[in-house]
Structure formats: C-alpha cells, structure tokens
C-alpha cells in the first residue's frame, strides 16, 4: 500500500519549503510573530509529511533516530549553556548579546539564539515522538 507517485513527489517538493518557513519563523521570532515554539513544530511537520508520504522506513534512513536524539539533547544542552554564560555577565539568563535598535535582526541578542535552540529542540522532540509512535504501524 504505497502512496501514489503524485503524492510522493509533491510532498518531496513541499517539505523543503516547510523547512524554510519554519526556519523563517524561528529566526524572525523576535521581530515578526513566531518564535521558537511555532517554528519548531513546523520543522517537525515537514519531516512528518515525508513520513506519511514515503513511509516510515524510507524516512528513517534519511533522519535516523540517533540523529534526532542527538539534535534534541544537544540543543537542550546549549540552552542551559546560554543561561549559564549569562550568569558570568550578571544575573541568570542575562541578555549579554544586546544588539542594534529594536527593528533589526540582531536586536534580540540571546533571544535569537534561544529561539533557534528552542525551535530545534521542539522540532526534534516531535519528530522523535512521531518515530516512536509510528514504530508499530510498519505499514509502509
């Protein structure tokens, strides 16, 4: 029961744009609406879209469970690191990268880094969740 080639090809075409959109939401989180959480979910949706169309085994070759676990734990670790680095400059989670004037991309400082790391972590978390839950329905 494989998906028709139309579905497979179209999902293969769409998912990179989903990743781009998720990355946009994450990086511009502190300017336009968006942010770590929403962008991360969209990142994981792009992987899940591939899973539904191409089947579980094919996608697992590309994004192995080990890779997803590494990305998730690394970004969680880095978030804690950033908060500790902030400790050196003063209080916990101190925004030590105070950037330019409010509107620009670098205005947030650690907020940008935090958003990116949160986004990665949540994207990896939901893809891992999907992998685990899908493991039994090997119906690809």
């Amino acid at each position: 029961m494989r998906m028709s080639s139309i579905v497979r090809n179209s999902s293969r075409l769409v998912s990179p744009f989903l990743v781009a959109y998720g990355a946009y939401l994450i990086i511009h989180g502190h300017i336009s609406p968006g942010g770590g959480f929403q962008g991360g979910v969209i990142l994981s949706v792009s992987v899940i879209l591939l899973i539904t169309s191409h089947g579980y085994k094919a996608v697992r070759k590309a994004f192995s469970v080990r890779l997803v676990k590494i990305v998730e734990s690394m970004s969680a670790l880095l978030i804690i690191m950033i908060s500790l680095i902030g400790l050196i400059f003063g209080t916990y989670f101190f925004n030590f990268l105070r950037g330019g004037e409010p509107g620009t991309l670098f205005s947030g400082g650690t907020v940008v880094l935090l958003n990116i790391l949160i986004g990665l972590e949540i994207g990896a978390a939901f893809t891992l969740l999907f992998y685990v839950l899908l493991r039994w329905t090997e119906s690809d």
């Binding site: 989180g29 502190h30 300017i31 336009s32 609406p33 968006g34 942010g35 770590g36 978030i79 804690i80 908060s83 916990y92 989670f93 925004n95 105070r98 950037g99 330019g100 004037e101 409010p102 509107g103 205005s107 947030g108 400082g109 650690t110 907020v111 935090l114 958003n115 949160i118």
Partner: peptide, 19 residues
C-alpha cells in the same frame, strides 16, 4: 530592544519559565 513583545516576554523577561 525586541519589537515582538510576546517573544521578548517569552525569551527575555521570563526565559527561566521557557527553560
């Protein structure tokens, strides 16, 4: 210095909660 107040609250004023 962040124009998106929600993101500033989420990741700067209350970053500890987000953690």
């Amino acid at each position: 210095g962040i124009s998106n107040v929600v993101a500033s609250i989420l990741t700067d004023w209350r970053a500890y909660d987000t953690l």
